[in-house]
């Protein structure tokens, strides 16, 4: 690890000012991903500003019937909250699908969105990687392709976003509340992540020094009937090959409301808007679910080693929607 200075910020404003002014400074939350990447010298901050103690760790009611989640909550605290378990079960399940209890006790909600890819070529400093070192090329594209993206990728980068939580947040239209050098703003989760074609070295639209302080979950009655399913190489404690967050309302045999997002397939949690449009107002049948999944995945551009993800995503979407229909 490279030497660095550490400080606990006194308040959000001074934390933001400090990190905004120092290009080599970084916020520290739970540290589960950042400290690991520092050990491998993938990241080499010169100053860590610890914000864990000053960002809220509670959930408050939000206007319009939603919830405002403090970004400093641990992943386990959020998953165990009764309001989340009852009103947004897909979010609890997504959180509980990720990492281990030990890591989720450390990891914050804000930090979860900002995890870096687990692409092994990004994590290996001896390999070329456009995300780690712009312009060096992509070793993954001609390497081991099993975990790579099939949607939204670019010649410069085919890495996937590793979060489970963010997939449910994308399906739920969650909105980030941030404080940056130019003040407060809100960013919908579905607008947080940049396309790799815009330059894979920057994952998100957050400015230097911009801190996530809270996450707003809008009221979504349909989400009370929702699930998260993660398909992976072992039953627990592994990243997703494909995951699906789905909420469904069926009335008189037709789909009236649906939320659908995919994990493990793209540089971001992939909100399946094409499939959602194909489902609403149509009969809730297996054939319809399959056609909608295929419409979404028509844009997939798999490589030889990850082509299995396309039928796997299709089948997981269909089985999720069928299960939610049968449980309706």
């Amino acid at each position: 690890m490279k030497p660095f200075a550490y400080q606990r910020a006194k308040d959000v404003e001074s934390a933001v000012t400090t990190v905004a002014a120092r290009p080599e400074a970084s916020f520290l939350g739970g540290g589960t991903n950042l400290v690991d990447l520092m050990k491998m010298e993938v990241l080499k901050p010169e100053l860590l500003v610890d914000v864990r103690h000053l960002v809220s760790r509670t959930i408050e009611p939000a206007h319009g019937g939603g919830l405002l989640i403090g970004a400093g909550m641990s992943n386990n605290e959020l998953a165990a909250d009764r309001r989340i378990r009852r009103r947004y079960p897909m979010l609890s399940q997504a959180l509980l699908s990720g990492a281990s209890y030990q890591l989720r006790n450390l990891a914050t909600v804000g930090g979860n969105f900002l995890q870096r890819t687990r692409c092994p070529y990004f994590r290996d400093v001896t390999m070329p990687c456009n995300k780690r070192e712009p312009g060096t090329g992509c070793a993954a594209r001609d390497g081991v392709q099993r975990d790579l993206a099939v949607l939204g990728a670019d010649a410069s980068c085919v890495a996937t976003h590793p979060s489970d939580m963010a997939v449910a947040m994308a399906a739920l239209d969650a909105v980030l509340h941030t404080v940056g050098p130019s003040g407060e703003r809100t960013i919908p989760v579905n607008e947080l992540y940049r396309s790799p074609a815009e330059g894979p070295q920057r994952d998100t639209v957050l400015e230097r020094g911009e801190l996530i302080t809270a996450v707003e979950l809008p009221a979504a009655p349909v989400a009370a009937h929702s699930r998260y399913r993660k398909v992976r190489d072992r039953a627990s404690y592994a990243f997703a090959l494909v995951s699906v967050a789905a909420a469904l309302e069926v009335r008189h045999g037709s789909v009236t409301q649906v939320r659908l997002a995919l994990g493990g397939v793209a540089h971001k949690p992939w909100r399946a808007t094409t499939a959602e449009r194909a489902l609403v107002g149509r009969p809730a049948t297996e054939a319809g679910f399959r056609a909608a999944a295929e419409a979404e995945l028509a844009a997939a551009r798999p490589l030889a080693g990850n082509a299995f993800k396309v039928p796997l995503a299709r089948n997981t979407i269909v089985s999720m929607l069928r299960d939610l229909t049968e449980g309706a």
């Binding site: 550490y6 520290l28 386990n76």
Partner: peptide, 19 residues
């Protein structure tokens, strides 16, 4: 490396001592 930190289990290898 699991220990309890303020009552919760964590992986102590990913916690900076200063934190």
């Amino acid at each position: 490396c699991t220990v309890m930190l303020d009552g919760r289990r964590v992986t102590s290898c990913l916690v900076l001592a200063v934190a």
